[in-house]
Design a protein around this nucleic acid. Structure first.
Length: 265
DNA sequence: TCTCGTGTTTCTTG
DNA sequence: TCAAGAAACACGAG
């Protein structure tokens, strides 16, 4: 589930632990999500360290501690939450940081998520060289145009899912963006006119902004005039023109679009 | 029992 | 060397 706005929501679930010391780390170092992390180093660095700050960029999160940094990616089914300090781990709780007043929990049934670890207080290598945030001034129309030109043979839907240019965009956001911009998801990038690309740029930023406001704040359901609530609805109709939505695999992912609003031209 | 999925990485093909 | 597509990962829900 977690895309840009959901990640922002989950990041804040650990806010109650800011400034608090980790007294004990419980985790499953053999879980798939911990691949590549040295369990001894991890536990040694985290125990007794204080949670200083948190940040999210696209789908990646960074939690800075006084002696180390922890990166969390939620994959498809991951979530962060805070529990009571006497919490005991459930089947899919892979990492729990016990503090005095609460326990910070990362659980992920499908284990497509991932934990990254960096010892020390300098910036972790995996946090450097991130692509510009979609709402920043560095995400420009020309950057978008250049990227689409390089991927001219790929369907626009598949390209919007590429995190190296569109950090945080996932399946539902890509469908929402293309539906609002009235672009057919299977259209090859090379066939988008300059005017369409400009409109796409505007729409990407609009969907990011609104998703962060609606979902990122308190996980509210998006309103009925978005494509979102109708995408998986049986017999779902386009909230703009009312005709039946179509679904098919585009760019390797199930895609939903309106055959009347989203055409080739 | 079988299919599918709001993601990423790695492999294969062109 | 680069781009595009497919497979693999793991497990719950319908």
């Amino acid at each position: 589930m977690p895309e840009l706005a959901e990640v922002e929501y989950f990041r804040k679930q650990w806010n109650g632990g800011l400034g608090q010391v980790v007294q004990h780390v419980a985790w499953h170092p053999r879980a798939r999500i911990a691949r590549g992390v040295d369990p001894v180093e991890f536990e040694k660095a985290l125990t007794g360290s204080r949670l200083i700050s948190s940040a999210a960029h696209g789908k990646q999160m960074l939690f800075r501690f006084s002696r180390a940094a922890v990166g969390i990616h939620l994959g498809m089914t991951g979530e962060l939450r805070a529990e009571r300090a006497d919490f005991s781990l459930g089947k899919h709780d892979h990492l729990v940081l016990f503090q005095g007043k609460q326990a910070l929990v990362f659980s992920d049934p499908r284990q497509f998520g991932r934990i990254l670890f960096h010892r020390g207080t300098d910036e972790p290598g995996w946090w450097k060289n991130r692509p510009p945030d979609l709402l920043s001034n560095d995400f420009t129309k020309s950057a978008l145009q250049n990227f689409l030109t390089r991927r001219k043979a790929a369907p626009i839907k598949a390209v919007l899912l590429m995190q190296e240019r569109f950090p945080g965009v996932g399946n539902w956001m890509a469908d929402e963006i293309l539906w609002r911009a009235r672009i057919l998801p299977s259209l090859r990038c090379g066939r988008l006119s300059e005017q369409v690309v400009n409109n796409l740029w505007k729409t990407i930023r609009e969907v990011c902004r609104q998703a962060l406001r609606v979902i990122g704040t308190d996980f509210s359901d998006p309103p009925d005039d978005w494509l979102f609530p109708h995408r998986w609805e049986k017999g779902g109709c386009c909230p703009r023109c009312g005709i039946d939505l179509k679904r098919a695999e585009v760019g390797g992912r199930t895609t939903c679009w309106c055959p009347r609003c989203q055409k080739e031209d």
